[in-house]
Amino acid sequence: MERILDDEIHDVGFGIKHLVAMAKSLGESPRKRWKTLVESHCRGGIWPPFNDSARLAAGLSRDFYDSLAS
């Protein structure tokens, strides 16, 4: 399980880096781009509980997803 968690933290971190770069290229804030992507690709929203410490370790702070949690 620890190996899977480490892999997920790495994968989420990779995605966040690309999200930030994409948002900057579009002249948007990363949080706004994140919200747009979640709303268009995650039908019904996202549901807690979240592993906040692992997400933060990957660079995804709660302010990205708190307002979107169902």
Rank of each mutant, 00 (worst) to 15 (best):
L68N: 01
D6N: 11
E39I: 05
F14T: 08
A54N: 11
G44Y: 06
L5K: 14
H18A: 09
G15I: 02
R33Y: 08
K17D: 13
L37F: 02
S25W: 00
L26I: 07
D6S: 15
V20E: 02
S67F: 07
L26H: 12
K32F: 14
C42A: 06
D7S: 10
D11K: 15
S61W: 06
P30C: 04
A58H: 09
R33D: 00
D63M: 02
S61V: 02
L37K: 08
E8G: 06
I4P: 00
H10D: 06
A21G: 04
L5A: 15
R55C: 15
Y65Q: 03
R62N: 08
R43L: 10
N51W: 01
F50Q: 03
P48D: 08
A69R: 11
R31F: 01
L37S: 08
L19N: 08
P48V: 07
R43Q: 12
K24V: 01
D63E: 13
E2P: 06
F14I: 02
L60T: 02
I46S: 06
D7H: 08
H18L: 12
D52F: 07
S40C: 08
K24D: 14
I9C: 02
L56M: 10
K24G: 01
A21P: 00
D7Q: 09
G13I: 04
S67N: 12
R3P: 04
E28T: 01
R43K: 14
R33M: 14
D66Q: 13
